[in-house]
């Protein structure tokens, strides 16, 4: 998997400059999961975010109960794990590889290293995360309005 290619193509890193993407490529690690592998579980401490390079993952609530619910299926270039980065809470859902999956792993500490050097670049990453969270909130609001 080409880390640069994935970083350049992901919404999470939109509007970053080439030097910033270079540094992020150094700070990211490639992780591979076989179909069925657990990436992380609900309730764990969140200390990294992930960008899918290839394959698909399921986001699952109540994973360890008798009635787990798949709340989303994410595909290549989607990202997840960003909520714990912002709110410092524990993981709100479990993530399980639906297929063999390759993803980019960026730890909070490494993102901090990035932030220390490229403040504007880090701000852009935060804005990108906020954009996605905002979009999700709007979608949720719209669904709620339809039901009321």
């Amino acid at each position: 998997m080409d880390k640069h290619q994935v970083l350049q193509s992901s919404r999470l890193f939109a509007n970053l400059l080439p030097d910033e993407l270079d540094m992020l490529a150094d700070l990211c690690q490639v992780k591979t999961y076989a179909s069925g592998d657990i990436v992380f579980e609900e309730g764990e401490v969140g200390n990294a975010l992930y960008v899918i390079g290839s394959g698909e993952v399921d986001v699952i609530r109540d994973f360890k109960t008798s009635s787990p619910k798949i709340i989303a299926t994410l595909k290549a270039l989607d990202f997840f794990g960003e909520m714990s980065l912002i709110d410092k809470e524990y993981r709100s859902a479990s993530v399980k590889a639906r297929t063999d999956t390759e993803m980019i792993y960026l730890s909070n500490e490494n993102l901090h290293s990035f932030a220390k050097v490229y403040k504007n670049g880090f701000t852009m990453v935060v804005i990108n995360i906020a954009r996605v969270l905002s979009q999700r909130l709007r979608e949720t609001n719209a669904k709620l309005a339809q039901r009321m």
């Binding site: 540094m23 150094d26 500490e109 290293s113 050097v117 490229y118 670049g121």
Partner: peptide, 11 residues
């Protein structure tokens, strides 16, 4: 914990 150095952004 290793950190890259030598990057001085021109903002």
């Amino acid at each position: 914990f290793i950190e890259p150095v030598g990057r001085e952004p021109d903002d």
